[in-house]
Design a binder for these strands. Structure first.
Length: 416
RNA sequence: GUGGCUGUAGCUCAGGGGUAGAGCCCCGGUUUGUGGUACCGGUUGUCGCGGGUUCAAAUCCCGUCAGCCACCCCA
């Protein structure tokens, strides 16, 4: 009895339809990034574990795919790209004109329990602007993330980008007498406020010398709370993107390293899942790479967004079309005369040389079967190579019309 | 890490102590140069794995592994 193998927990097989879906998403990511003038880069999949310790502390090691290599090095499959980006940008920062507009599409690994929208292996689109202090850079990333959603077929009915400003909270807290050392704790309370009972939040705020009412009033103040929010909002409005944007100061994002505007894209509806998120992190490159450089960026993973695409009618239709197109050919060659095998091969290669994608049957098959296969191949046309060669039949598979045509005119006719 | 649900054909699932089932998919055929429908036929299972109870276990019990979902976390 053969041993049965299956994928490791949290890992996925990509059958052709899955790969087609993934490619569709990658193409959208890449197309929109290019439209914004971003250039693609990539880093190693395996990095020293310390690279991630430095940024996020020791607890993070629990969620890393880490091990010792044969040279006794402590290494990790990358759980994210930002530390790699910080290292790369810092190492050769003099080589590039500022600001850098870099994006990347890659695979990441986290040793976590597998559940909906989350695996141990996933793909992520990362998009960062480095060496730019202007809040217009933040707005540019927000606009880009909105365009990703629109490009996938979503509308204002499906999603919102919720924007906030960590700096506004820091200023508020300091003005209320919160000490520098308590800032991280304070931001965490705000971050968890939505899913924590009010009494508990109140209790924690009291310990910091704050009141829940005061916090609520501050959240109510919205964009008035921050100059950079007002500015980025005005920019997005000028772009005609206002309907997608919502100021929500309750968003601060879990990560400690954000220093300014932060944003998340949420689906509208019961789930309210975050499909993308990011913000400004002006200290991180200095911390990791030793070169002070302001920066902002965001990321979008493949799992939640593809779930959402599949659950939403118009985007799902676009995805399905792409999946079908990727698995189809233009033409199917029907061999109607077994004695014309050489001629069939000649036709096959001649058309492919013209850039036409095609399939044909490798083994002898009844003509009826071949048309069935042609149907399933997604081809729009069938070319029948038979005893009349070099005259061939060109059949339009959708309306079943057929014409006789000289082989030498075939490619040109098909490319019309 | 914690909890709930589920594991039967490639897929979706029914059956619930006594001969292993359906639909879909796949393959072949319906008289040999024309396809989507229809009809006929065919392949596929240690009923997740291990143990226990029983004359008898896919079925009941225990364990284990895996999957899904939620919590935690989310770079």
């Amino acid at each position: 009895m053969a041993q049965k193998f299956q994928t490791l927990p949290g890992f996925r097989d990509f059958y052709p339809a899955d790969c087609a879906a993934r490619n569709y998403l990658f193409n959208v990511w890449r197309r929109v990034a290019r439209r914004y003038g971003f250039v693609e880069y990539e880093g190693p999949v395996l990095e020293p574990t310390d690279l991630y310790r430095k940024k996020s502390g020791n607890e993070i090691v629990n969620q890393l795919f880490c091990f010792e290599d044969k040279g006794d090095r402590h290494v990790s499959m990358r759980p994210e790209l930002t530390p790699t980006l910080a290292r790369m940008a810092a190492a050769r920062q003099r080589d590039f004109k500022k600001p850098l507009r870099w994006f990347s599409i890659g695979q990441f690994f986290r040793y976590e329990k597998h559940q909906k929208g989350r695996g141990r292996e996933f793909y992520q689109f990362n998009c960062d602007i480095l060496g730019e202090e202007s809040v217009i850079a933040d707005a540019e990333l927000m606009a880009l993330s909105i365009d990703l959603m629109l490009e996938l077929g979503f509308t204002a009915d499906n999603f919102r980008i919720r924007v906030s400003d960590r700096q506004a909270w820091v200023s508020y807290a300091l003005s209320q007498g919160v000490s520098e050392d308590d800032l991280t704790d304070f931001l965490q309370v705000i971050d968890k406020m939505e899913r924590t009972p009010p009494e508990k939040t109140e209790e924690k705020l009291k310990a910091l010398g704050l009141s829940l009412d005061g916090i609520k009033a501050f959240i109510q103040s919205g964009a008035e709370a921050s100059d950079s929010l007002r500015e980025s909002l005005a920019n997005l409005e000028a772009r005609g993107l206002k309907e997608y944007v919502e100021v929500d100061l309750s968003i601060v994002r879990g990560l400690a390293y954000y220093t300014g505007p932060v944003f998340e894209i949420f689906d509208i509806g019961k789930g309210m899942r975050a499909v993308a998120g990011g913000g400004r992190y002006d200290q991180l490159i200095g911390l990791i790479g030793g070169v002070e450089m302001p920066a902002c960026g965001f990321a979008m993973g493949d799992m939640v967004i593809l779930d959402l695409v599949r659950e939403t009618t118009a985007p799902a239709a676009g995805l399905d079309r792409a999946i079908e197109a990727e698995q189809s050919v233009d033409v199917f060659i029907v061999g109607a005369d077994p004695s014309k095998k050489a001629e069939t091969a000649q036709v096959v290669q001649a058309l492919r040389n013209e850039g036409i994608s095609l399939q044909y049957s490798f083994s002898e098959m009844k003509v009826g079967k071949q048309f069935q296969a042609a149907e399933q191949s997604g081809a729009t046309h069938a070319v029948i190579v038979g005893s009349e060669f070099p005259e061939v039949g060109l059949k339009d598979l959708s309306d079943r019309s057929e014409e006789k045509i000289a082989f030498e005119d075939l490619a040109a006719t098909l490319k019309r």
